[in-house]
């Protein structure tokens, strides 16, 4: 891989309510490229994302950003890192009491000394990028699910982030809007040189935008590499995912009965 890594993940383990959800996850996020993390529901993608955006505490020597250990971040470094990143959550995570444009303006008001006139223009530029400039003064409750998702993306772009994290961008969107969003993600990489990490299980979108792919299953990385490497993977589980084949039941009959009786 030619691009230098912005983020290096090394043997990351993570637990949730006593269960281990990530097992020795290791890969690198190359600069100015799009990395797509994919896998079936519950494979640990979102937990991994929460570590990467510093919403879940990470231990020492597990995630490095530009060579600095995220596990050693103090409040100042954490705040500086959050100003470098943009995050689109699955839900869009908008403030219901603010208009769509005001939602986009929030990070700019909090983190910059920009005057209101410039902030308003920047918010409208971001809304125009996602095709929502017409509803700038609507409340989030007046938008459809897909529109809220796009408004969330506009907000994640408010600060022109260096690194953009996007959780399930296509979920709940019609195919045309989803394709437009993929196109925007590619444009952001090309135009602004953003490093973009997309979490998705939408195969078509993933192969359309990815420079690098990471396929996860049950909290582990099955394979990482270029889209061609993944497409030609000899790993049966990767191929099963690409063929969209259902599992044949994860528990053996006797284990299933034992669980029912427990």
């Amino acid at each position: 891989m030619s691009a230098s890594p912005v983020i290096t993940i090394r043997n990351l383990n993570s637990h949730y309510q006593g269960h281990q959800v990530l097992h020795d996850v290791s890969f690198q996020v190359p600069r100015n490229q799009i990395t797509v993390i994919m896998g079936m529901s519950g494979c640990g993608k979102t937990t991994l994302l929460r570590h990467l955006v510093a919403l879940k505490k990470t231990g020492l020597n597990q995630i490095e950003v530009d060579g600095k250990d995220m596990g050693k971040y103090q409040e100042k470094e954490l705040s500086a890192y959050r100003r470098r990143i943009g995050v689109l959550f699955q839900s869009g995570a908008l403030f219901n009491s603010l208009s769509v444009a005001e939602n986009i303006a929030v990070p700019l008001k909090v983190h910059t000394a920009l005057p209101g006139e410039i902030i308003r223009i920047m918010a409208l530029i971001k809304l125009n990028m996602v095709g929502l400039v017409d509803v700038a003064d609507y409340l989030p409750s007046q938008l459809s699910g897909g529109m809220r998702k796009r408004a969330g993306l506009a907000r994640s772009l408010a600060m022109d982030p260096e690194i953009l994290f996007v959780d399930e961008p296509s979920a709940g969107l019609d195919p045309i809007t989803a394709a437009a969003l993929d196109q925007l993600i590619l444009e952001l990489k090309e135009t602004l040189g953003m490093t973009i990490i997309v979490v998705t299980h939408e195969l078509r979108s993933a192969f359309d935008i990815a420079d690098q792919m990471v396929v996860m299953d049950k909290g582990r990385i099955l394979q990482a590499g270029s889209p061609d490497t993944i497409r030609e993977s000899g790993n049966e589980r990767v191929q099963q995912f690409l063929r969209r084949e259902a599992d044949q039941g994860s528990l053996k009959t006797e284990e299933y009965v034992a669980q029912l009786m427990a």
């Binding site: 910059t112 006139e117 410039i118 530029i125 022109d160 602004l192």
Partner: peptide
Amino acid sequence: MDTAGVALLLE
């Protein structure tokens, strides 16, 4: 230049 710069040019 970022979009704050674009906004200033537009203004």
